[in-house]
Each structure stands twice: as structure tokens, then as C-alpha cells.
């Protein structure tokens, strides 16, 4: 399977966003501009994040995987952001705050066909050296290449 989830235009590196709301607004706007999500997508992201937080306390930096209802989404995509300075997200399933420097936004439509891709993306987050590399890339081309080669590697291993 080709990584149709990935799109170079949906990557922001070295963002200076200073709050999780700014993060969701920037990535959400990209999704809307590209026609992958509905106009009210950002509201959906914020509401869901408030109710079901997505910060993950992984190494070497925290990662957040914001997402919302499939009804807001037109096409399966992921959007990526790396941050200059960590931004606080609430921890998934907990009540702690996580300092997040890598954000991977899932835009998922309903259906089972994204199961494998989703598993691989989660696998990627659990890879400490990958996360470390991701937060230090200097431009979105590099970020795209890095992410794509990692996903391709996981697919070949499966």
C-alpha cells in the first residue's frame, strides 16, 4: 500500500505555536484548505481534545495524536507538526500534562481499511530514535521522507 495518508503539504516543521489550541488551529486549517476536512473541523478537534485528550508521554519527547469524529473528515490523511518549544497537552487516559514536541493529527473516515496504516503510525510513535530524528528535521521535505521511509519499512516487515 502506498502511503496515501502522507502529504507534504500537511507538514509544518519548527512551529512556534505556543498552545495546543494554536496547534489544532494550524493543522486543522491546513486540512480544511486542502479540502480534506469540513469547515467546522477545528471545533471538532478542540471539543474532542478537551473530552478525550491525546498527549502521549513517550520518549524522548511527548507526542500528541489529535483526531476527531469521522463525520468531519473527507479523506484519510495525517498531518504532522514539530514544535520549537514544547506545548502542553493533557495525557491520554490520565490527568497529567505532557510536554509535546511532535504532533501527528489523524484525519480518519469510517471504515476498516485504515487499520493497518493506523497500527503502523502508532508503531512509529513508539520508536524513540525516530521521534528524536523527527523533531530535529529542518524542513518538511526531510520530514516527509523520514516518515515515509519509516512507514514503508514497517509495511515491508509486516
Amino acid at each position: 500500500m502506498k502511503n496515501s495518508f502522507l502529504d507534504k503539504e500537511l507538514i509544518i516543521v519548527n512551529s512556534n505555536a505556543s498552545s495546543k489550541h494554536e496547534v489544532l488551529e494550524s493543522l486543522g486549517s491546513l486540512m480544511i484548505e486542502k479540502g480534506y476536512a469540513n469547515e467546522n473541523y477545528i471545533d471538532g478537534l478542540k471539543t474532542r481534545e478537551k473530552e478525550f485528550a491525546t498527549g502521549l508521554s513517550v520518549k524522548p519527547v511527548g507526542v500528541a495524536i489529535p483526531h476527531t469524529d469521522s463525520s468531519y473528515v473527507k479523506e484519510d490523511k495525517i498531518a504532522i507538526m514539530t514544535l520549537d518549544e514544547p506545548v502542553a497537552f493533557e495525557e491520554m487516559g490520565g490527568s497529567n500534562s505532557v510536554d509535546v514536541q511532535l504532533v501527528i493529527l489523524f484525519a480518519l473516515t469510517d471504515g476498516d481499511d485504515h487499520l493497518k496504516a493506523l497500527q503502523n503510525i502508532i508503531q512509529v510513535i513508539q520508536d524513540e530514535s525516530f521521534v528524536r530524528e523527527m523533531v530535529t528535521v529542518a524542513d518538511k521535505e526531510k520530514a516527509y521522507e523520514l516518515f515515509e521511509s519509516k512507514l514503508t519499512q514497517l509495511e515491508e516487515e509486516a
Binding site: 478525550f52 513517550v58 495524536i65 491520554m92 487516559g93 490520565g94 502508532i122 508503531q123 513508539q126
Partner: peptide, 24 residues
């Protein structure tokens, strides 16, 4: 098994499954 914060008692054991997402 849930990845969300669930505090309510459903009369059934609840296990938090965040480990499957974080890997830890």
C-alpha cells in the same frame, strides 16, 4: 479496556489500555 479516562463504575472490570498506544 479503554484508552480514555474512565472513572465511572460500570459493574465490569475496567483496564486502561494506553500502553497499546504509547508502547510503554
Amino acid at each position: 479496556v479503554t484508552t480514555a479516562k474512565v472513572e465511572r463504575d460500570y459493574g465490569v472490570p475496567v483496564i486502561h489500555g494506553i500502553a497499546y498506544i504509547s508502547g510503554m
